[in-house]
């Protein structure tokens, strides 16, 4: 579990996050949603330590993330996996070398054991046999799956996904969502997903956090979305007339 208490972040005079207090639960897909500029990316960067908050605390289980020294931080980070929006695969390395990279750096496995692990995670993301391909030789959806494979190869306790569906067609988006969800449930990972994909919200949103102008304005799960009368949630999720009609139909409203 990851717990944020009164987390604030400012850039100069601009306060981007205005005291976020929330929890991201283990074994669940925790979503951060909101309009562009709401502070989602900043929130995710604070959670993984790519930025430091101006004030407030971030707790990884019982560990205060910001009080860790360099060595402790590195050892905690080995329990963290992240899928980047652009996948962030190393262009000069093959799929196999990309996934081997953290194994070679941080484990003492033999080469054969490492390759077994690589093949296992590639199978887990349905990419068997793609070992020798370069990132430029596979599609965007496959790149995301390689990114997931690399993120889970060290068996992380915490998985962060930044816009995992951006740039993907709806069908591939569903495949990625299902993959993240099953990995989360099977391995009891604390997964935090930054998204504005409505399908993801309704399919895998176990714990949804809606940010608006740097403030947490709603928290709930996918079932709560349909029945909530929160104005911000309504404006965000059901912004399009089509979705409004769909919700009304689902709730039997005229």
């Amino acid at each position: 579990m990851i717990r944020c208490e009164n987390v604030k972040k400012s850039f100069g005079d601009t306060e981007v996050l205005k005291g976020i207090t929330t929890e991201f639960e283990a074994g669940k897909c925790n979503l951060i949603i909101g309009l562009s500029g709401a502070g989602k990316t900043v929130m995710l960067k604070l959670l993984v330590g790519l930025m430091k908050q101006t004030s407030g605390t971030i707790m990884y289980d019982d560990v205060n993330f910001n009080s860790l020294g360099d060595d402790e931080l590195r050892s905690l980070r080995m329990k963290v996996g992240m899928l980047f929006q652009g996948s962030a695969l190393f262009d000069s390395m093959t799929v196999e070398e990309n996934i081997l990279f953290p194994l070679e750096l941080f484990t003492k496995k033999t080469k054969a054991e490492m390759l077994d692990r690589v093949n296992y995670v590639l199978e887990r993301v349905n990419l068997e046999g793609a070992n020798q391909k370069y990132p430029s030789e596979v599609s965007g959806g496959m790149q995301k799956r390689v990114g997931i494979a690399r993120a889970i190869v060290l068996e992380p306790k915490y998985l962060f996904c930044d816009e995992p569906n951006s740039g993907l067609d709806p069908k591939t988006s569903m495949v990625i969502d299902e993959l993240i969800q099953s990995i989360t449930y099977d391995n009891n990972i604390t997964t935090v997903i930054n998204t504005h994909d409505m399908n993801s919200v309704m399919e895998i949103g176990d714990n949804i956090n809606l940010l608006h102008h740097g403030t947490l304005v709603w928290r709930g799960n996918k079932a709560d979305v349909l029945t909530s009368d929160n104005e911000f949630l309504d404006n965000f999720i059901f912004a399009s007339p089509f979705l409004q009609r769909l919700r009304n139909a689902a709730l039997g409203r005229s």
Binding site: G49, L50, R77, M78, V80, G81, F84, F106, L154
Partner: peptide, 14 residues
């Protein structure tokens, strides 16, 4: 720019 450095940082690489 391609977030490769961020990816390495998160893995725990110096």
């Amino acid at each position: 720019q391609k977030e490769h450095i961020d990816a390495m940082e998160i893995m725990g690489v110096n």
